[in-house]
Write a protein that binds this DNA or RNA. Structure first.
Length: 508
DNA sequence: TTCCGACAGTGGGGTCGCAAT
DNA sequence: ATTGCGACCCCACTATCGGAA
C-alpha cells in the first residue's frame, strides 16, 4: 500500500466531523491493506509509529525539502526509513537523522509530507486516534468492538491487535492472553470533586484507597525474572531495583501486579513529586540515586497470581488475591465503605498525611484499559487563587485566532508589580476565548514575541491548581501545578489579587 | 427528546540523557 | 561546561458525537 492512500484517508477522516463517517473511512482502508502492512497502517492512522519514538520532533521538521509530484512511497519503505532514523546513535547522529528525514520527505508529495509531518509531530488532527481506530478495526474485521478492547488491554498495543483481527477475526482476538513479561494496558481513573460524589457515582459500597503522588508501575514476575513497566509500557526495571526486590520477596513466583512507586522522606511523608520523578528517570548511577532517594512501592491490584489470570474478576476478588500474596506493608492502605462521612474522614486523614488524595474503586468492575466503566474515580483537594493576567499566547489548531494560553501573576506588595507563576489554557470555553481575545487586544501593551501578547495587568482571574512546586523557570522560584481557569473576577481589581506570600505559604 | 459516556484536542511544569555548541 | 532537544513523568479541561435512557 502507498503512503498516499493513508494521507487521502486521513484527509477524508479529518473532513468528516461525524464519528461514524470517520470509522467508515478507516474501515474501508483497513479492508484493502495487505497483512504485512496492517500494523503500519493502523499505527499511522491512530497517530503513532511502530517504532514508538524515533528521536525526531517539532524542531527537526522545520524547513522540509520541496515535494515531488508523483506519489510512489510504500508503507514498507517509509517504515524502513523511520527505523533507520531511530537506529542512529552517538556523535553525528542528529545530523544523520536530519539527513534521513530530508531524504524521506524529498521522496514525498505535498499531501504525503503534510500527513507524515503531522504524524511525526504527534498532531494528526483528524479527530480520530486509538478510540476511533478500535471501532474501525471492529467494523473491518466483523468483530465486536468489546473484543478488540479486551485484546488491547491484554496485548497493550493496538496495531498488533488490529492486524490479528483483520487476518483472523474474532477467534484471533480471543486468542490474546495475558503474558507474564509483556505489559498490559493500565486501567485509568475518572475524577470527582468529593468522595461523596464518587461513592454516589458508583452507587454502593466501594474501596477508598490512598492516591500516592508518585509514578505508576506494573510488575511482572516469572520465577526469578522480574520486569517492571511504566504507564506507557516502557520497561523501567533497571531504574527501580526496590520494586524488583519487593516482588522477589513475595511467596508467589508467577505474578502481575499494579502499583505506584514513591520517594518517602525519613518521617514517612511523601517527597515532592519532582523528587520521585527524577529518581525514576535516573538511569546512569542507580545505586547512588537509590542511596540518596530510596523508593517505596505500594501495590493496589493483582492481575495474575500463580497461574490464574484475574483481570475479569471483580475488583474485590483481585484485591483479596493481592492481600494473600503481597505483605500488608506493600499494599496501598484503603477503607471499604458505603458511608460518605467515613469516606470523607478517610480522605481528610490521607491529605493530613501529605498524600495526593484517594481513588474510590468499585468492588465489582473487572480490570480494563482506558476509562471505560468508570470503575475507578480519583478525588483530590483543589486550591484556588485570584491571579492577574500578564500576557496571553495565540492558540493553535482549533484555537487558532484566539488568544489562549494565559500568563499568570501574583501581586508583589514589596516590588509593586507581579510575579509570574505559570501559564494555563485549561477551563476556557469557546465563548470565554472569544471574549478574552477581544479584551486582551484592548489591553495590549504590544507583543513580546511573535506568539505572545503582553497585556496591562488589570484582569483578575480565579485559578484552581493542585499545589505549588519549586521552579527554576519562574522568578519567584515557584510554579503552580495543573493550573486551570475557574472564572474571571470582574468584581476584583489587580490590587486585590492574591500575593506572592500567600502562594509561598502553600509551597510544600 | 434529552442525557451522558467516551474521545480527541490543547496545551501545562519538571526531569533526565544525549548531541551539539 | 552549557544549551537545546526529545522523551517521558505527572496531568485538567471543553467540544463533540452518538448511543442510552
Amino acid at each position: 500500500m502507498l503512503l498516499i492512500d493513508l494521507a487521502r484517508t486521513s484527509a477524508a477522516v479529518a473532513a468528516d466531523s461525524a464519528r461514524l463517517a470517520k470509522i467508515r473511512h478507516l474501515a474501508e482502508l483497513l479492508g484493502r491493506v495487505e497483512p504485512g502492512e496492517a500494523e503500519i497502517a493502523i499505527a499511522y492512522l491512530s497517530g503513532e509509529l511502530p517504532q514508538r519514538q524515533i528521536g525526531v520532533g517539532w524542531t527537526s521538521l522545520r524547513d522540509l525539502p520541496d515535494p515531488r509530484l508523483a506519489a510512489t512511497a510504500t508503507l514498507g519503505q517509509v517504515d524502513d526509513l523511520l527505523s533507520r532514523v531511530k537506529s542512529q546513535a552517538g556523535p553525528g547522529s542528529q545530523t544523520a537523522r536530519k539527513a534521513l528525514v530530508t531524504e524521506l520527505f524529498a521522496a514525498l508529495t505535498t499531501p504525503e509530507q503534510t500527513f507524515l509531518s503531522r504524524l511525526l509531530r504527534g498532531e494528526l488532527r483528524q479527530g480520530a486516534l486509538e478510540g476511533v481506530m478500535i471501532e474501525a478495526i471492529a467494523k473491518a474485521a466483523g468483530a465486536p468492538a468489546a473484543e478488540v478492547r479486551r485484546a488491547l488491554t491484554l496485548r497493550g498495543w493496538l496495531p498488533a491487535v488490529g492486524a490479528a483481527a483483520l487476518s483472523g477475526g474474532v477467534d484471533a482476538l480471543r486468542a490474546f492472553r495475558l503474558e507474564v513479561g509483556r505489559p498490559v494496558a493500565p486501567m485509568l481513573a475518572q475524577s470527582a470533586t468529593s468522595v461523596a460524589a464518587a461513592l454516589d457515582k458508583l452507587g454502593g459500597p466501594a474501596a477508598v484507597e490512598w492516591k500516592l503522588d508518585g509514578v505508576r508501575i506494573q510488575a511482572h514476575r516469572s520465577g526469578d525474572t522480574v520486569s517492571v513497566f511504566s504507564r506507557t509500557l516502557d520497561e523501567i526495571t533497571a531504574q527501580v531495583p526496590e520494586v524488583v526486590e519487593a516482588v522477589r520477596a513475595c511467596p508467589a513466583t508467577d505474578l502481575v501486579l499494579d502499583g505506584e512507586v514513591i520517594a518517602l522522606r525519613a518521617d514517612g511523608r511523601p517527597a515532592p513529586f519532582q523528587i520521585t520523578s527524577g529518581r525514576v528517570a535516573s538511569r546512569t548511577d542507580v545505586d547512588k540515586a537509590r542511596r540518596t532517594t530510596p523508593l517505596s512501592v505500594f501495590f493496589f491490584d493483582a492481575l495474575r497470581v500463580d497461574g490464574a489470570d484475574l483481570l475479569d474478576l471483580p475488583g474485590e476478588e483481585r484485591h483479596a488475591a493481592l492481600t494473600r500474596t503481597v505483605p500488608a506493608g506493600l499494599i496501598a492502605p484503603r477503607l471499604v465503605t458505603g458511608d460518605a462521612a467515613s469516606g470523607e474522614a478517610f480522605f481528610a486523614e490521607v491529605i493530613r498525611g501529605g498524600h495526593e488524595g484517594v481513588v474510590v474503586k468499585s468492588l465489582q468492575t473487572p480490570y480494563a484499559a482506558g476509562r471505560r466503566g468508570a470503575g475507578w474515580i480519583k478525588v483530590k483537594p483543589r486550591h484556588t487563587l485570584d491571579l492577574v493576567v500578564l500576557a496571553a499566547e495565540w492558540g493553535s489548531g482549533r484555537r487558532e485566532g484566539w488568544l489562549s494560553n494565559l500568563h499568570l501573576g501574583a501581586r508583589d506588595p514589596d516590588g509593586g508589580g507581579f510575579v509570574m507563576l505559570g501559564k494555563t489554557f485549561k477551563g476556557l470555553t469557546d465563548e470565554l476565548l472569544t471574549w478574552q481575545t477581544e479584551r486582551f487586544l484592548a489591553l495590549a501593551e504590544g507583543p513580546t514575541d511573535s506568539w505572545t501578547v503582553a497585556v496591562r495587568p488589570e484582569l483578575v482571574v480565579e485559578i484552581a491548581f493542585d499545589g505549588v512546586q519549586r521552579s527554576s523557570r519562574y522568578p519567584g522560584g515557584m510554579a503552580l501545578r495543573f493550573a486551570r481557569v475557574i472564572r474571571y473576577r470582574p468584581d476584583k481589581t489587580a490590587d486585590q489579587a492574591d500575593t506572592v506570600e500567600t502562594v509561598r505559604s502553600l509551597m510544600v
